[in-house]
């Protein structure tokens, strides 16, 4: 047994040392999550308009074009449970917050980040936000949440080529979806609609409760809340399950009737957005993002005047 323990330890040691080194190197690379968490830690008391939600908001709202002091705290696949946790984390610091804008899209009530292929992103919330909505050991490590090839590339790009890993502007808007690289709208519409279709009844009720908690939080703090179904191209919206879509819209409309501090705007099939505004069928490019942001800004101004 001694021999076994001795050789197993000697054999494993280089692997363990490399793993620790790898983790340290990965954690020291700035990323969008660490940037946003850090920004909120230091500036949440100055923010007047906070944008929460998934990739539709992340790539769709550029707070630099908002007349109020805004920040985009959304991210890819960020579901309502995480939106609420982010809000709660800084609950005593939202001193100037006037508006919370949250995306309530087709999939927002159907599935949480935990249910889908983006569940690995939860480690970013655990490590950088200190938010944990599940108890999974690997969420504590960067290296277990991405393939070695991808992580090695990140380390090489940052430490050797001195290229950063952040693709957002200073106010949190995702800048990667450029109109020069637009994708096939027909193909991406079908694929995205199918990807967003999975529904879990338990999750559905839980996410409604999270959404209501966000609204209640805003109400208690005298903050106005705007729920948005983000613009999409027809190849996406027409491929969605009508029944599921109606169930989400009905829930949000019921909340709209119930709470006086909230307004709901369904821009899913808004005709003012056309093909050139979309990077793919359910994400706006920089042209569409400008249009969308200006629209939201004018909504906030209108609400400000009433």
């Amino acid at each position: 047994m001694k021999k076994f323990i001795k050789y197993t330890t000697i054999f494993s040691l280089p692997i363990l040392i490399l793993m620790v080194l790898f983790e340290v190197l990965l954690r020291n690379i700035p990323n969008e999550y660490s940037y946003k968490s850090n920004y909120l830690d230091h500036n949440s008391d100055k923010i007047q308009a906070l944008f929460l939600g998934n990739s539709h908001i992340f790539y769709g709202i550029n707070p630099e074009l908002i007349s109020l002091n805004g920040f985009n705290a959304s991210h890819v696949a960020q579901s309502l449970d995480l939106d609420y946790e982010i809000l709660k984390k800084h609950e005593n610091n939202w001193k100037n917050l006037k508006y919370i804008v949250v995306s309530v899209d087709y999939m927002s009530l159907l599935s949480s980040i935990q249910d889908g292929p983006a569940e690995w992103r939860l480690m970013n919330y655990k490590i950088y936000y200190d938010i944990h909505i599940r108890n999974k050991f690997t969420d504590n490590f960067e290296m277990f949440n991405g393939k070695l090839a991808k992580n090695t590339r990140r380390i090489f790009n940052y430490y050797i080529k001195h290229q950063g890993g952040i693709n957002i502007n200073t106010l949190g808007w995702g800048t990667q979806l450029n109109s020069s690289k637009n994708k096939d709208l027909l193909k991406t519409g079908k694929i995205a609609a199918a990807r967003h279709a999975a529904k879990n009844e338990i999750t559905f009720n839980k996410l409604i409760s999270n959404l209501e908690s966000i609204i209640m939080f805003a109400k208690n703090n005298k903050i106005k809340i705007i729920l948005i179904s983000c613009p999409s191209y027809k190849t996406y919206s027409e491929n969605l399950n009508k029944k599921e879509l109606a169930s989400t819209v009905n829930v949000v409309n019921a909340l709209d009737d119930k709470y006086s501090n909230m307004r709901y705007f369904n821009l899913l099939q808004d005709k003012s957005f056309d093909a050139k505004d979309f990077f793919d069928a359910d994400h706006l490019n920089e042209i569409g993002a400008k249009k969308f942001t200006v629209k939201i800004d004018s909504i906030m101004k209108t609400m400000e005047n009433h």
């Binding site: 569940e119 690995w120 949440n145 991405g146 393939k147």
Partner: peptide
């Protein structure tokens, strides 16, 4: 190394 190379994510 090949296992780690392909592993990762879920």
């Amino acid at each position: 190394v090949s296992i780690f190379y392909f592993a990762g994510g879920s």
